[in-house]
Amino acid sequence: MNTSPLRFLFIIALLSTTASATEPETRYSAYHDYRLVTVVEGLTRPWAMTFLPDGDMLVTEKAGSLRIVRDGKLLEEPVAGIPEVFNQGQGGLLDVVMHPDFAANQLLYLSYSKPLADGASTTAVIRGRYRDGRLRDVEELFEADSRGRGHYGSRIAFDGKGYMYITVGDRQASPSGNLEAHPAQSLADHHGVVVRLHEDGSIPEDNPFVDQDKALPEIWSYGHRNAQGLAIDRASGNVWITEHGPQGGDELNLVERGANYGWPVVGYGVNYGSGKAIHEGTHREGMTQPRKVWVPSIATSGLILYQGDAFPHWRGHLLAGGLAGKQVTLLELDGTSVVRHQTLAHNVGRVRDIRTGPDGYIYLALDHTDSDSPILRLEPVPRQELSLTD
Protein backbone atom coordinates (compact mmCIF):
# COMPACT_ATOMS: atom_id res chain seq x y z
CA MET A 1 0.00 0.00 0.00
CA ASN A 2 1.29 3.42 -0.97
CA THR A 3 0.96 5.76 2.03
CA SER A 4 1.89 9.42 1.78
CA PRO A 5 4.26 10.90 4.39
CA LEU A 6 1.46 13.18 5.62
CA ARG A 7 -0.96 10.26 6.11
CA PHE A 8 1.80 8.28 7.90
CA LEU A 9 2.38 11.11 10.37
CA PHE A 10 -1.36 11.34 11.00
CA ILE A 11 -1.58 7.61 11.82
CA ILE A 12 1.39 7.85 14.22
CA ALA A 13 -0.20 10.86 15.96
CA LEU A 14 -3.53 9.03 16.27
CA LEU A 15 -1.90 5.92 17.74
CA SER A 16 0.10 8.03 20.16
CA THR A 17 -3.03 9.86 21.30
CA THR A 18 -4.90 6.59 21.79
CA ALA A 19 -2.06 5.10 23.81
CA SER A 20 -1.71 8.16 26.03
CA ALA A 21 -5.46 8.19 26.67
CA THR A 22 -5.07 4.92 28.58
CA GLU A 23 -2.38 6.37 30.84
CA PRO A 24 -3.44 8.00 34.14
CA GLU A 25 -3.49 11.76 33.82
CA THR A 26 -0.79 13.78 35.49
CA ARG A 27 -1.98 15.91 38.38
CA TYR A 28 -0.10 18.88 39.73
CA SER A 29 0.70 20.32 43.14
CA ALA A 30 3.03 23.00 44.45
CA TYR A 31 5.82 20.53 45.13
CA HIS A 32 5.18 17.27 43.27
CA ASP A 33 3.41 16.14 40.15
CA TYR A 34 1.74 12.75 40.49
CA ARG A 35 -0.68 10.34 38.92
CA LEU A 36 -3.41 8.18 40.45
CA VAL A 37 -3.01 4.50 39.62
CA THR A 38 -5.55 1.77 40.40
CA VAL A 39 -4.03 -0.93 42.63
CA VAL A 40 -7.03 -3.25 42.98
CA GLU A 41 -10.78 -3.15 42.39
CA GLY A 42 -13.78 -5.17 43.54
CA LEU A 43 -13.80 -4.31 47.25
CA THR A 44 -17.03 -3.60 49.09
CA ARG A 45 -16.86 -0.49 51.25
CA PRO A 46 -13.25 -0.77 52.48
CA TRP A 47 -12.51 1.00 55.76
CA ALA A 48 -8.79 0.50 56.42
CA MET A 49 -5.67 -1.20 55.04
CA THR A 50 -2.23 -2.30 56.20
CA PHE A 51 0.85 -3.71 54.48
CA LEU A 52 2.43 -6.96 55.65
CA PRO A 53 6.18 -7.67 55.50
CA ASP A 54 5.62 -10.43 52.91
CA GLY A 55 4.12 -7.93 50.43
CA ASP A 56 0.44 -8.72 51.02
CA MET A 57 -2.04 -5.97 51.80
CA LEU A 58 -4.89 -6.54 54.25
CA VAL A 59 -8.11 -4.53 53.81
CA THR A 60 -11.12 -4.38 56.10
CA GLU A 61 -14.55 -4.32 54.51
CA LYS A 62 -17.25 -2.69 56.58
CA ALA A 63 -19.61 -5.67 56.38
CA GLY A 64 -17.14 -7.80 58.34
CA SER A 65 -14.55 -9.29 56.01
CA LEU A 66 -10.78 -8.88 56.18
CA ARG A 67 -9.53 -9.28 52.61
CA ILE A 68 -6.10 -10.13 51.21
CA VAL A 69 -4.58 -8.34 48.23
CA ARG A 70 -1.64 -10.27 46.79
CA ASP A 71 0.38 -9.24 43.74
CA GLY A 72 -2.30 -6.73 42.77
CA LYS A 73 -5.15 -9.27 42.96
CA LEU A 74 -7.97 -9.50 45.49
CA LEU A 75 -8.08 -13.05 46.82
CA GLU A 76 -11.51 -14.66 46.90
CA GLU A 77 -11.30 -16.08 50.43
CA PRO A 78 -11.32 -13.58 53.32
CA VAL A 79 -9.23 -14.04 56.45
CA ALA A 80 -10.79 -16.55 58.85
CA GLY A 81 -11.27 -15.97 62.57
CA ILE A 82 -12.79 -12.47 62.43
CA PRO A 83 -15.51 -11.92 65.08
CA GLU A 84 -19.10 -11.03 64.27
CA VAL A 85 -19.58 -7.31 63.71
CA PHE A 86 -22.55 -4.98 64.07
CA ASN A 87 -22.98 -4.12 60.40
CA GLN A 88 -25.61 -1.42 60.59
CA GLY A 89 -25.39 2.28 59.82
CA GLN A 90 -21.81 3.39 60.43
CA GLY A 91 -20.94 0.16 62.25
CA GLY A 92 -18.88 -2.73 60.94
CA LEU A 93 -15.32 -3.99 60.72
CA LEU A 94 -13.20 -0.86 60.91
CA ASP A 95 -9.46 -0.34 61.51
CA VAL A 96 -6.61 -2.82 61.02
CA VAL A 97 -3.07 -2.17 62.30
CA MET A 98 0.02 -4.33 62.72
CA HIS A 99 1.92 -4.48 65.99
CA PRO A 100 5.21 -2.55 65.61
CA ASP A 101 7.08 -5.86 65.90
CA PHE A 102 4.70 -7.81 63.68
CA ALA A 103 7.52 -9.60 61.84
CA ALA A 104 8.42 -11.34 65.11
CA ASN A 105 5.04 -11.77 66.84
CA GLN A 106 2.43 -11.72 63.98
CA LEU A 107 0.07 -9.65 66.14
CA LEU A 108 -2.69 -7.89 64.26
CA TYR A 109 -5.09 -5.38 65.87
CA LEU A 110 -8.64 -4.75 64.66
CA SER A 111 -11.36 -2.34 65.77
CA TYR A 112 -15.02 -2.97 65.10
CA SER A 113 -18.54 -2.22 66.25
CA LYS A 114 -19.30 -5.04 68.66
CA PRO A 115 -22.91 -6.28 68.91
CA LEU A 116 -24.24 -6.37 72.47
CA ALA A 117 -26.86 -8.62 74.04
CA ASP A 118 -29.48 -5.87 74.24
CA GLY A 119 -29.29 -5.15 70.50
CA ALA A 120 -27.00 -2.16 70.95
CA SER A 121 -23.35 -1.96 69.91
CA THR A 122 -20.08 -0.39 70.99
CA THR A 123 -16.50 0.14 69.85
CA ALA A 124 -14.15 -2.75 70.61
CA VAL A 125 -10.52 -3.62 69.83
CA ILE A 126 -9.15 -7.15 69.51
CA ARG A 127 -5.82 -8.64 68.60
CA GLY A 128 -4.77 -12.02 67.27
CA ARG A 129 -1.89 -13.79 65.56
CA TYR A 130 -2.18 -13.70 61.79
CA ARG A 131 -0.87 -16.80 60.06
CA ASP A 132 -1.78 -18.48 56.77
CA GLY A 133 -4.91 -16.46 56.14
CA ARG A 134 -6.36 -16.91 59.64
CA LEU A 135 -6.51 -14.85 62.82
CA ARG A 136 -5.71 -17.08 65.79
CA ASP A 137 -5.60 -16.69 69.58
CA VAL A 138 -8.00 -13.74 69.40
CA GLU A 139 -8.37 -11.68 72.59
CA GLU A 140 -10.37 -8.56 73.33
CA LEU A 141 -8.23 -5.67 74.62
CA PHE A 142 -10.80 -2.89 74.88
CA GLU A 143 -14.58 -2.49 74.93
CA ALA A 144 -15.91 1.05 75.11
CA ASP A 145 -18.52 2.05 77.63
CA SER A 146 -20.62 3.88 75.06
CA ARG A 147 -24.08 3.60 73.55
CA GLY A 148 -25.72 5.32 70.61
CA ARG A 149 -26.17 5.08 66.86
CA GLY A 150 -23.02 5.77 64.83
CA HIS A 151 -19.77 7.66 65.48
CA TYR A 152 -17.66 4.70 66.58
CA GLY A 153 -14.34 6.48 65.96
CA SER A 154 -12.19 3.33 65.87
CA ARG A 155 -8.75 4.39 64.66
CA ILE A 156 -5.77 2.64 66.27
CA ALA A 157 -2.12 3.76 66.32
CA PHE A 158 1.08 2.88 68.19
CA ASP A 159 3.64 5.43 69.34
CA GLY A 160 6.66 3.12 69.26
CA LYS A 161 7.14 3.48 73.02
CA GLY A 162 4.81 0.66 74.05
CA TYR A 163 1.53 2.59 73.99
CA MET A 164 -1.58 2.19 71.85
CA TYR A 165 -4.05 5.00 71.13
CA ILE A 166 -7.69 4.38 70.18
CA THR A 167 -10.32 6.91 69.12
CA VAL A 168 -13.94 6.48 70.24
CA GLY A 169 -16.71 8.68 68.85
CA ASP A 170 -19.52 10.39 70.73
CA ARG A 171 -22.06 7.88 69.33
CA GLN A 172 -24.17 10.68 67.88
CA ALA A 173 -25.48 11.79 71.25
CA SER A 174 -27.56 14.89 70.51
CA PRO A 175 -26.22 18.20 71.85
CA SER A 176 -29.25 19.87 73.42
CA GLY A 177 -30.13 21.70 76.59
CA ASN A 178 -27.14 21.84 78.93
CA LEU A 179 -24.17 21.35 76.61
CA GLU A 180 -21.86 20.59 79.51
CA ALA A 181 -24.03 17.56 80.36
CA HIS A 182 -23.26 15.96 76.98
CA PRO A 183 -21.49 12.59 77.46
CA ALA A 184 -18.45 13.81 75.49
CA GLN A 185 -17.84 16.19 78.40
CA SER A 186 -17.91 13.35 80.91
CA LEU A 187 -14.96 11.26 82.10
CA ALA A 188 -17.32 8.55 83.37
CA ASP A 189 -17.80 6.92 79.94
CA HIS A 190 -16.00 6.60 76.60
CA HIS A 191 -18.12 8.96 74.48
CA GLY A 192 -15.87 11.22 72.37
CA VAL A 193 -12.48 10.27 73.78
CA VAL A 194 -8.98 9.20 72.87
CA VAL A 195 -7.93 6.14 74.88
CA ARG A 196 -4.32 5.28 75.78
CA LEU A 197 -3.36 1.72 76.69
CA HIS A 198 -0.34 -0.50 76.78
CA GLU A 199 -0.02 -2.73 73.71
CA ASP A 200 -1.53 -5.63 75.70
CA GLY A 201 -4.59 -3.58 76.69
CA SER A 202 -3.52 -2.81 80.25
CA ILE A 203 -3.85 0.73 81.63
CA PRO A 204 -0.73 2.90 81.99
CA GLU A 205 -0.20 4.24 85.49
CA ASP A 206 0.69 7.69 84.15
CA ASN A 207 -2.61 8.25 82.31
CA PRO A 208 -4.05 11.63 83.36
CA PHE A 209 -7.22 10.45 85.12
CA VAL A 210 -6.00 7.24 86.79
CA ASP A 211 -6.42 8.63 90.30
CA GLN A 212 -9.54 10.74 89.68
CA ASP A 213 -12.81 9.52 91.21
CA LYS A 214 -15.54 8.50 88.74
CA ALA A 215 -13.17 8.90 85.77
CA LEU A 216 -12.29 6.02 83.46
CA PRO A 217 -8.53 5.51 83.69
CA GLU A 218 -8.12 4.62 80.00
CA ILE A 219 -9.02 8.16 78.88
CA TRP A 220 -6.18 10.31 77.53
CA SER A 221 -8.26 13.22 76.16
CA TYR A 222 -11.96 14.02 75.80
CA GLY A 223 -14.47 16.44 74.32
CA HIS A 224 -14.11 14.96 70.82
CA ARG A 225 -16.92 14.29 68.34
CA ASN A 226 -15.84 11.47 66.01
CA ALA A 227 -12.16 11.08 65.18
CA GLN A 228 -11.58 8.86 62.16
CA GLY A 229 -8.05 10.01 61.40
CA LEU A 230 -5.12 9.24 63.73
CA ALA A 231 -1.38 9.63 63.13
CA ILE A 232 1.55 9.64 65.55
CA ASP A 233 4.93 11.25 64.98
CA ARG A 234 7.18 8.73 66.71
CA ALA A 235 10.14 11.13 66.71
CA SER A 236 8.37 13.92 68.60
CA GLY A 237 5.59 11.88 70.22
CA ASN A 238 2.95 14.22 68.76
CA VAL A 239 -0.47 12.59 68.38
CA TRP A 240 -2.66 14.05 65.62
CA ILE A 241 -6.33 13.35 64.91
CA THR A 242 -8.87 14.56 62.40
CA GLU A 243 -12.46 14.51 63.56
CA HIS A 244 -15.82 15.05 61.93
CA GLY A 245 -17.63 18.25 62.73
CA PRO A 246 -21.38 18.59 62.17
CA GLN A 247 -22.38 20.83 59.25
CA GLY A 248 -19.03 22.59 59.03
CA GLY A 249 -16.30 22.45 61.63
CA ASP A 250 -14.16 19.40 60.84
CA GLU A 251 -11.04 19.65 62.99
CA LEU A 252 -7.36 18.76 63.03
CA ASN A 253 -6.30 18.42 66.66
CA LEU A 254 -2.99 17.88 68.39
CA VAL A 255 -3.93 15.48 71.18
CA GLU A 256 -2.46 16.47 74.54
CA ARG A 257 -2.52 14.65 77.86
CA GLY A 258 -5.78 15.28 79.75
CA ALA A 259 -7.01 18.00 77.40
CA ASN A 260 -10.68 18.82 76.75
CA TYR A 261 -11.41 19.61 73.07
CA GLY A 262 -14.77 21.18 73.76
CA TRP A 263 -17.42 19.19 71.88
CA PRO A 264 -20.22 20.25 71.90
CA VAL A 265 -19.69 23.32 74.12
CA VAL A 266 -17.39 25.03 71.62
CA GLY A 267 -16.84 24.42 67.93
CA TYR A 268 -17.21 25.79 64.42
CA GLY A 269 -20.18 23.88 62.97
CA VAL A 270 -23.95 24.30 62.92
CA ASN A 271 -26.97 21.99 63.00
CA TYR A 272 -27.66 19.95 59.87
CA GLY A 273 -30.25 21.45 57.57
CA SER A 274 -31.42 24.31 59.77
CA GLY A 275 -28.00 25.93 60.14
CA LYS A 276 -28.85 26.88 63.73
CA ALA A 277 -26.10 27.29 66.28
CA ILE A 278 -24.99 24.27 68.31
CA HIS A 279 -22.21 25.70 70.45
CA GLU A 280 -22.06 28.52 72.95
CA GLY A 281 -19.14 29.88 70.91
CA THR A 282 -15.81 28.95 69.37
CA HIS A 283 -13.55 29.48 72.39
CA ARG A 284 -13.67 28.83 76.10
CA GLU A 285 -10.98 28.87 78.75
CA GLY A 286 -9.83 25.34 79.56
CA MET A 287 -10.91 23.94 76.18
CA THR A 288 -8.25 23.26 73.55
CA GLN A 289 -8.46 24.85 70.11
CA PRO A 290 -7.99 22.87 66.88
CA ARG A 291 -4.90 23.40 64.71
CA LYS A 292 -7.09 23.61 61.60
CA VAL A 293 -10.81 23.82 60.88
CA TRP A 294 -12.59 22.89 57.64
CA VAL A 295 -15.65 25.01 56.85
CA PRO A 296 -17.44 23.63 54.93
CA SER A 297 -16.71 20.10 56.10
CA ILE A 298 -14.85 17.61 53.94
CA ALA A 299 -15.86 14.72 56.27
CA THR A 300 -12.32 13.91 57.38
CA SER A 301 -11.38 10.24 57.44
CA GLY A 302 -7.90 8.74 57.32
CA LEU A 303 -4.72 10.61 58.28
CA ILE A 304 -0.99 10.03 57.85
CA LEU A 305 2.20 11.81 58.76
CA TYR A 306 4.14 11.19 55.57
CA GLN A 307 7.69 9.87 56.11
CA GLY A 308 8.32 8.20 52.74
CA ASP A 309 10.92 8.89 50.06
CA ALA A 310 8.74 9.00 46.93
CA PHE A 311 7.52 12.56 47.67
CA PRO A 312 10.41 14.19 49.55
CA HIS A 313 8.84 17.66 49.76
CA TRP A 314 5.82 16.21 51.58
CA ARG A 315 7.95 14.43 54.18
CA GLY A 316 7.12 15.46 57.75
CA HIS A 317 3.71 16.85 56.79
CA LEU A 318 0.17 15.50 57.24
CA LEU A 319 -2.18 14.20 54.57
CA ALA A 320 -5.88 13.95 55.45
CA GLY A 321 -8.56 12.14 53.49
CA GLY A 322 -12.07 13.47 52.95
CA LEU A 323 -15.31 11.54 52.33
CA ALA A 324 -17.72 14.28 51.33
CA GLY A 325 -14.83 16.35 50.02
CA LYS A 326 -13.65 13.44 47.83
CA GLN A 327 -10.08 14.63 48.21
CA VAL A 328 -6.81 14.57 50.12
CA THR A 329 -5.57 17.67 51.95
CA LEU A 330 -1.84 18.27 52.35
CA LEU A 331 -1.25 20.07 55.66
CA GLU A 332 2.22 21.61 55.86
CA LEU A 333 3.57 21.79 59.39
CA ASP A 334 6.01 24.13 61.06
CA GLY A 335 6.45 22.40 64.37
CA THR A 336 2.88 21.92 65.55
CA SER A 337 1.37 24.72 63.46
CA VAL A 338 -0.30 24.30 60.07
CA VAL A 339 1.31 26.99 57.92
CA ARG A 340 -0.42 26.21 54.63
CA HIS A 341 -2.59 23.57 53.01
CA GLN A 342 -3.34 22.31 49.53
CA THR A 343 -6.00 20.04 48.08
CA LEU A 344 -4.74 16.95 46.25
CA ALA A 345 -6.57 14.23 44.33
CA HIS A 346 -9.54 16.45 43.53
CA ASN A 347 -12.87 14.60 43.05
CA VAL A 348 -11.20 11.20 43.36
CA GLY A 349 -14.03 9.68 45.41
CA ARG A 350 -14.87 9.15 49.09
CA VAL A 351 -11.45 8.73 50.71
CA ARG A 352 -12.01 6.46 53.69
CA ASP A 353 -8.40 5.59 54.49
CA ILE A 354 -4.94 6.83 53.55
CA ARG A 355 -1.69 4.97 54.22
CA THR A 356 1.96 5.10 53.18
CA GLY A 357 3.06 1.94 51.41
CA PRO A 358 6.44 0.28 51.82
CA ASP A 359 7.34 1.73 48.40
CA GLY A 360 6.77 5.26 49.71
CA TYR A 361 3.69 5.73 47.53
CA ILE A 362 0.48 7.02 49.09
CA TYR A 363 -2.47 4.61 49.05
CA LEU A 364 -6.14 5.61 49.18
CA ALA A 365 -9.06 3.31 50.02
CA LEU A 366 -12.22 4.67 48.39
CA ASP A 367 -15.61 3.98 49.95
CA HIS A 368 -18.13 3.89 47.11
CA THR A 369 -21.46 3.29 48.82
CA ASP A 370 -23.27 2.17 45.66
CA SER A 371 -20.61 0.27 43.69
CA ASP A 372 -17.38 -1.71 43.89
CA SER A 373 -14.63 0.26 45.59
CA PRO A 374 -10.98 0.47 44.53
CA ILE A 375 -7.68 1.18 46.18
CA LEU A 376 -5.61 3.80 44.37
CA ARG A 377 -2.10 5.08 44.89
CA LEU A 378 -0.35 8.35 44.21
CA GLU A 379 2.84 7.84 42.19
CA PRO A 380 5.30 10.67 41.52
CA VAL A 381 5.71 12.00 38.00
CA PRO A 382 9.10 13.62 37.26
CA ARG A 383 8.87 17.27 36.39
CA GLN A 384 10.50 18.68 33.26
CA GLU A 385 12.93 21.40 34.21
CA LEU A 386 12.63 24.46 32.00
CA SER A 387 15.59 26.74 31.33
CA LEU A 388 15.29 30.52 31.18
CA THR A 389 15.63 30.38 27.41
CA ASP A 390 12.67 27.97 26.89
Results as ranks from 00 to 15, higher is better:
Q172K: 13
A13D: 08
A188F: 06
H341Y: 10
L179N: 02
D359F: 02
E280F: 11
A235Q: 15
H279T: 13
H244F: 07
Y361R: 14
V59W: 02
A181Q: 10
S186C: 10
E218G: 05
E199Y: 11
E199N: 12
A320D: 03
S387G: 12
N260E: 02
I219Y: 06
G308K: 08
P175D: 03
Y272C: 06
L74V: 06
D189E: 12
I304F: 03
L94D: 00
P296N: 09
Y152E: 09
R377Q: 13
M164P: 00
V339D: 02
N260L: 02
H283F: 10
R147H: 11
L366K: 04
S337N: 12
I11P: 04
L36C: 07
D372W: 13
P208T: 07
V266L: 13
D206R: 12
S20Q: 12
S16D: 09
E25C: 05
I12R: 14
Y130H: 09
N207E: 04
K326N: 14
L366M: 06
Y165K: 01
N207H: 05
S337W: 11
G248S: 11
F209Y: 03
I362L: 08
D390R: 05
S176Q: 13
H279F: 10
R45G: 09
Q228F: 07
A188M: 09
Y261S: 07
S29C: 00
P46S: 07
E199H: 09
V293N: 00
D54P: 08
R350C: 06
D132E: 10
G335W: 03
W314R: 03
T44Q: 15
F51H: 14
V193K: 07
A310Q: 10
N207Q: 09
K326T: 14
V210Q: 14
V168G: 04
G201F: 08
Y363G: 03
M98A: 12
Q307H: 11
A120G: 15
G321K: 02
F311I: 04
S337F: 09
S337H: 13
A80F: 00
S176I: 14
G249H: 01
R383L: 12
A310G: 12
E256M: 13
H341T: 14
V239D: 00
W47H: 11
R149K: 15
V195G: 00
A13P: 10
G335M: 02
G302D: 01
T60P: 00
A345E: 08
R131S: 15
R284S: 07
T17I: 14
A188S: 09
R284F: 04
A277K: 14
Q185D: 01
G262F: 00
D189R: 08
D145R: 15
R147L: 14
G89C: 10
S29R: 01
A277W: 08
A104F: 12
T329A: 15
R383K: 15
V270T: 15
L388P: 10
L66K: 01
S373I: 04
L330Y: 01
H198W: 09
R136K: 07
H279W: 08
D95F: 00
D353P: 01
T38C: 12
Y361Q: 11
G357L: 09
